[in-house]
Every structure is written in structure tokens, then in C-alpha cells.
């Protein structure tokens, strides 16, 4: 079913809205959550919470892109669970991915410093805009979705070695870029 029709179902307050959403994007959402939490039951809960969030938010909200909107909600809910549950987070794909970025994002930022968080996000977006599509996809899959190297390789038709090398190079470039921008 088209995303626009699913949004219409939400507006009509039809129970089918969540069914259709789940059928179309359920697997993707579960994968994103499992990447972060490495725990199926927790991830299923997060995905269900995301459906509920969409049910509550649409209407009045009308997402331009339902898929991206849903992905962001699932990720945010999963991250909240991830940070709350220190026992589970260890060894998840996402944990490994974040460790890689720790060497790049070295600035000591207070959690209250919303302005700096926003600035860093904007700079990273600018940096991503200058990458080739493939390198950008590798980066976003790894550090946004928390995909494993192997999963990215399968998704994009490359070897894990190539993905790994490209990511390493992209991190180095990002570090250099942020240094020039005096953000680290």
C-alpha cells in the first residue's frame, strides 16, 4: 500500500493503519531496533511503541515521508531504551559503531549544550553532502542505523573489507574536517 494511503488510514483512525504500517515496514523497524539493542523482545516493544507514537501523532502531524518519519521514531525510542539499559547495550552493533566514532568526536560536550549538538549535527550533514553516495550510505547505515559491517556489505553488494576500509577513511576525513572547523 502507498504511504499516502496509510497516512489516510491514520487520519480515518482506522485500525488497519497500524496493520498496514507493520506489514510494510515492520521488518525494517525491528532490524533498526535490534541493531541498537541486540535484544528481540526489547526491540519488538520499541517497535510497538513507535507504532503507538505514530497513532498518537498522526493527525495532527502529516509526515512528508512516512518511512523516514517512522525510522526516526523507532530509532529514538530504541536509543532511549539503549541508554537506560546499560546491561543490554554492551556488544550491540550500535555500541561497536559508536566506539568507532568516539575517536572522531573527541570534544567534551555537556549534555546541556544543545547549541553545540546542533552545530555538530549540521557540520556532519555538510560533510556527508560532500561524500559520494556509496560512502555516505556506508556511513549512515553504520552510525545511524547501527548496521554491522557484514550487513552493509550485503545490502550494497560490496565486500566487508571494502566497507570497513571506506568507513575508516571516511572517519579520518570527518575528523580532519571537524578539526578544520575547530569543533574538536
Amino acid at each position: 500500500m502507498d504511504d499516502s494511503k496509510i497516512i489516510t488510514l491514520f487520519f480515518e483512525r482506522s485500525q488497519n493503519a497500524v496493520n498496514e504500517l507493520s506489514e510494510k515496514y515492520g521488518r525494517l523497524c525491528l532490524q533498526i531496533s535490534v541493531n541498537i539493542l541486540k535484544n528481540i523482545s526489547d526491540s519488538e516493544e520499541c517497535v510497538n511503541d513507535a507504532y503507538l507514537a505514530l497513532w498518537n501523532n498522526i493527525p495532527p502531524e502529516v509526515p512528508d515521508d512516512l518511512k523516514t518519519y517512522l525510522i526516526k521514531v523507532v530509532r529514538n525510542i530504541s536509543l532511549k531504551r539503549y541508554h537506560a539499559n546499560t546491561a543490554v547495550k554492551r556488544n550491540s552493533f550500535y555500541d561497536a559503531a559508536l566506539s568507532e566514532l568516539e575517536e572522531v568526536l573527541t570534544a567534551d560536550v555537556s549534555s546541556e549544550n544543545e547549541v553545540l549538538f546542533k552545530e555538530l549535527s549540521e557540520k556532519i550533514n555538510t560533510f556527508l553532502g560532500g561524500l559520494s553516495r556509496e560512502n555516505r550510505t556506508f556511513f549512515v547505515c553504520r552510525y545511524y542505523y547501527g548496521d554491522s559491517i557484514k550487513a552493509i556489505a550485503e545490502k550494497t553488494g560490496n565486500t566487508p573489507h571494502l566497507v570497513s576500509v571506506r568507513l575508516m577513511r571516511t572517519r579520518e576525513k570527518l575528523k580532519e574536517y571537524l578539526r578544520k572547523e575547530e569543533l574538536i
Partner: peptide, 11 residues
């Protein structure tokens, strides 16, 4: 890591 994931959320 919490801060990093927060920055990544801004992609």
C-alpha cells in the same frame, strides 16, 4: 556514546 548518538540523530 549517548552524546554521539544524539549528534547522529541530527542526520
Amino acid at each position: 556514546k549517548e552524546s554521539i548518538s544524539r549528534i547522529m540523530s541530527g542526520i
